[in-house]
Nucleic acid binder design. Sequence first.
DNA 1: GTCTATAATTCGATAGAC
DNA 2: GTCTATCGAATTATAGAC
Lengths: 206, 206
Amino acid sequence: MSSASSTDTQTQILDAAERLFAEQGFGATSLRSIIRAADVNLAAVHYHFGSKDNLIAATIHRMAQPIVEAGVEQLATATAQPNTLSVESILNAFFAPVEVICQAKGERGRIQARLMGRCRTEPAIEPIAEEAFAMSQQVFLAAFQEALPQQSEAEIRWKFDLLIAMLIRVLCAAGRPNAVLQGYSPAEIEAAIQRLVKFAAAGIRA
Amino acid sequence: MSSASSTDTQTQILDAAERLFAEQGFGATSLRSIIRAADVNLAAVHYHFGSKDNLIAATIHRMAQPIVEAGVEQLATATAQPNTLSVESILNAFFAPVEVICQAKGERGRIQARLMGRCRTEPAIEPIAEEAFAMSQQVFLAAFQEALPQQSEAEIRWKFDLLIAMLIRVLCAAGRPNAVLQGYSPAEIEAAIQRLVKFAAAGIRA
DNA sequence: GTCTATAATTCGATAGAC
DNA sequence: GTCTATCGAATTATAGAC
């Protein structure tokens, strides 16, 4: 068991790593800049995580866990409805991370959004990220296949791949001039999600 | 005027930088790894480009130029038609880079696609990339506004932002399991573009 | 579990010979 | 225009005291 202080040190390191990895990328972020921001000793990183690569994996997994859970839970609720599963209800669950990240976490949410985006542009990181999001990918693909039996699996797969790209872009660009999500109030988040669902549903059905 | 050999050295450096920046990111790629791949001397980089930052800017501009030109030219052709400008014709021009990059350049195209993707995930690079793609962004936004007068400028802007995210994803994921673009033959590229146009047009009109 | 000190490498940049 | 040599600073990682 870890003591309370060691848990705090781990969290401080993860918080700083999350922010710096998101802003600068994994390779460009040094352990020194992380321990400076976390106000811990350099040796503590190697003690708690072993290496920079292990710290990267731990950071990604901590970021992904609540996002995957929120999507899977909300999808399970939608699936439990007696009516036929609609594309819109699946998309509402798929875009749930927008609410999870932007509303509940504020500034930290935008950091995690950037980090999520990096998982798709850094080739060396992809295996780690793929594992972290595997469960989410699996259940959503299955739901779309059930809701769109007339479309081939390959067709649904590349459309779902584009949906992920859209979701990441929405999260990364939140609050910026041309973004779909301009503010962070519950009403604005809800409205943005509805715009996204409408946009995506039309594309998927096309 | 540069001599022939100096031009070759510059090109060798740019080719290696393009590949390594795309694969590892700007911050994580050292000048030494670039000169190793380019088989030139370290001092040659500073002689020809002055600094790492200048080399980054030169690499991005060289990548962006033919992409911007292809899109703008094809859009001009579509605009020159006597009929009303359709969303589909604009989107065909917008997705032209897929053909430019994937068909004409082969493996190097996929490298440039990744590099293009990095321009939107590395905050420090954004000003450079924004300048490199400014002309393209401007003409396409104007075309969409003309084709969709019933939609507000803000609405068109966030939809266009998502289109860029989709285009980058298509280019980055080309050839991978769940990608819309599976092969690189002219027929497959043309078919993928048509799928994309259909998907995007439905979303934009929604 | 936290720390200092340091080893071993690598980084960007520059000086100066040719 | 290209090269060698090198500076000063930064990097990851480790050893060992407390």
